[in-house]
Design a protein around this nucleic acid. Structure first.
Length: 317
DNA sequence: GGAATTTGACCCTA
DNA sequence: TAGGGTCAAATTCC
């Protein structure tokens, strides 16, 4: 199981998770306060930023967690080797006059990476493809993308690969955070339900809503293809199960946000934990109540609300 | 015409 | 030395 090797690293991992989850809870509380105050509701930039921050906190936590838990097919990252040289600076053969920067890279070894799975390659950021490789023992090629703002200094890159067991899904591995402003652009990501960035909770008037669940997932939260075509009967069944769970989650979210009475409802984003991951988590010692049919939300609630008891939730640390 | 993608070559890491 | 990550010229797209 690719767990970090020392007690100190486990403690550090746990600390990072707690920090990120607390940050997310705090930001969610601020967002609730913001939305409950009609005088502040007209401030979309604030709400948007808070929603982005919440999303980021959970992404970070899942990234930290996944670095310790081998969950399903996702291959999770690699611990920072700490300081190998990044560029040899050497170039042996190059035609005269040709600037040769080849070889100026290091093999991926960074803690600043995380994995997502999604039914779409899109994630709302501007990427430029710079390579594609056939990978040994992999049916599908791996595509390499970097931020379009690379030359402004943004070091964000990602690798996208179809999932062998579920080819309608893409596994995306991100490396380095955006240092450009790219991730903060595009208000539609929040204010409209946009399949391009459905991870973000969208707030808009009910009549403008499209309830199609479209969000990709940050591993290990799973979402089925929203289009519904090319789905087997089993997949259709899974989808309707997920939709039922989504409905329950939506009610609980609205209760948490205090939005129901105001008629101001978020476009719900499906955050369903895959059954396989539920089993993984259960086998790791985490059990939710037997009448709990919405494992996704409850799992997350426990992570957020019972941080003091995190040792019981993640005894493997 | 500029931006994005494709693709073969290069070269580092394991 | 094989595999994987990146480069950059050629090609395609808008």
């Amino acid at each position: 199981m690719g767990c970090l090797g020392t007690e100190n690293l486990h403690a550090e991992t746990k600390r990072l998770m707690v920090v990120e989850l607390l940050k997310g809870r705090d930001t969610a509380t601020r967002l609730r306060a913001l939305l409950q105050d009609p005088r502040r509701r007209q401030d979309p930039v604030s709400a948007e930023q808070l929603a982005v921050d919440i999303f980021r906190s959970f992404s970070e936590s899942l990234s930290v967690l996944s670095s310790c838990v081998d969950v399903g097919s996702a291959q999770i990252p690699v611990v920072d080797s700490g300081g190998s040289s990044s560029c040899s600076g050497e170039s042996k053969k190059k035609p005269a006059g040709v600037k040769d920067r080849r070889g100026c890279y290091k093999r991926r070894r960074t803690a600043d990476s995380w994995v997502t799975e999604s039914s779409t390659m899109e994630d709302g950021c501007a990427w430029r493809k710079y390579g594609q490789k056939v990978i040994l023992n992999s049916e599908y090629p791996r595509c390499y993308y970097r931020c379009t703002h690379k030359y402004e200094g943004c070091k964000a890159t990602k690798q996208v690969e179809r999932i062998k067991e579920d080819p309608i899904m893409y596994q995306t591995t991100y490396f380095n955070k955006h240092t450009c402003k790219e991730t903060l652009r595009a208000p539609h990501l929040i204010l409209d339900l946009d399949p391009i960035e459905p991870n973000l909770i969208s707030f808009q008037a009910p009549e403008a809503q499209d309830h199609t669940p479209t969000n990709p997932m940050i591993h290990p939260v799973k979402q089925e293809s929203y289009k519904g075509d090319n789905l087997s009967e089993d997949q259709d069944q899974d989808l309707s199960d997920d939709q039922a769970k989504s409905s329950l989650l939506q009610d609980q979210w609205q209760e948490f946000m205090g939005l129901e009475s105001s008629g101001y409802k978020p476009v719900w984003t499906t955050m369903i934990m895959s059954s396989s991951y539920q089993e993984e988590v259960a086998s790791a010692g985490f059990h939710h109540s037997s009448d709990d049919q919405s494992a996704g939300l409850h799992g997350l609630d426990l992570e957020v609300d019972q941080l003091a008891d995190i040792d019981n939730i993640f005894p493997l640390f």
